[in-house]
Design a protein around this nucleic acid. Structure first.
Ligand SMILES: [Mn+2]
Ligand SMILES: [Mn+2]
Ligand SMILES: [Zn+2]
Ligand SMILES: [Zn+2]
Lengths: 135, 135
DNA sequence: ATTTTAAACGCGACTGAGTTGCATCTGTAA
DNA sequence: TTACAGATGCAACTCAGTCGCGTTTAAAAT
């Protein structure tokens, strides 16, 4: 019985543990930044079919193991953890090196909202220059 | 000499006034919600080539006549006015009828940011149910 | 250990948004 | 009226993501 973290994570979400999925989870664990599809494809030890990867990303997302981030580049990014309705953490995009990362803390808005309007979730992208690029 | 609003708007931005552009500006003036490419294509009196429309939208955006909105649906929306670095107005997306509209007021975030990180712009999408759908 | 089966995988074809090259047309200013 | 930069239309293209389907495999049942 393995106690490796990827195994535990897959188990805890009820996901079947295939070699691809184990490596995929490892890849996420090794990276603090969000990963694009191509980051993922290039980060795996062998070249995998894109359908397989996309389907695994969808399964992981549905299981709440990862969440998808839309950084306004038109290319989806993925990161560990989930972002449910009550979690409105923001995402930081470095306009220089284009890395995307999850931010801690929550976002509050100061906007007029009509009585009848019901706000459910706030999704925020913070653009700027990351610490790494500011050196 | 015409004093129609579309003419004035195109003139003020130094844009050439073609029949398509006049009608395109009229369409934006008639709609308070943001428009998708297909909203626009369907809203014009004759079926226009998509390259022409996309190029006009790009020109309008570069001239500051409209701004592009990414509502996380993967389909761009466009609305009158500009959104420069100092203007961080949010956008509202109705999860029921899928209309997108500009919100007044500004967004403030309460997130830890490392010293070296330089924040330039904040883009916020507010999800919920619009007043129209809440009746 | 062997069988069974639902789910994962790989391949190829497809979709849909948006872009680009190029020939033709037109708004505008000389 | 002419000249020409820029607008239009068409076709071909790119690129992210999806889907159908035949094959393989993880994991559970025997
Ligand atoms: Mn995140
Ligand atoms: Mn807006
Ligand atoms: Zn950076
Ligand atoms: Zn609505």
């Amino acid at each position: 019985m393995s106690t490796e973290l990827q195994t535990q994570l897959l188990d805890s979400k009820g996901l079947k543990k295939t070699p691809i999925r184990r490596e995929l989870v490892s890849l996420f664990l090794q990276n603090s930044n969000a990963l694009s599809f191509h980051d993922i494809q290039d980060g795996m030890s062998s070249k995998l079919d894109k359908s397989t990867l996309y389907r695994n990303l969808t399964s992981f997302e549905e299981a709440g193991l990862i969440h998808k981030i839309n950084d306004h580049s038109g290319i989806a990014k993925f990161a560990l953890g989930q972002q449910d309705l009550s979690d409105d953490h923001a995402h930081f995009v470095c306009d220089n090196c284009e890395t995307v990362s999850c931010m801690e803390g929550s976002v509050s808005i100061d906007v007029k909202v009509d009585d009848k309007v019901h706000v459910k979730q706030i999704q925020t992208i913070v653009h700027g220059i990351c610490g790494n690029c500011n050196s």
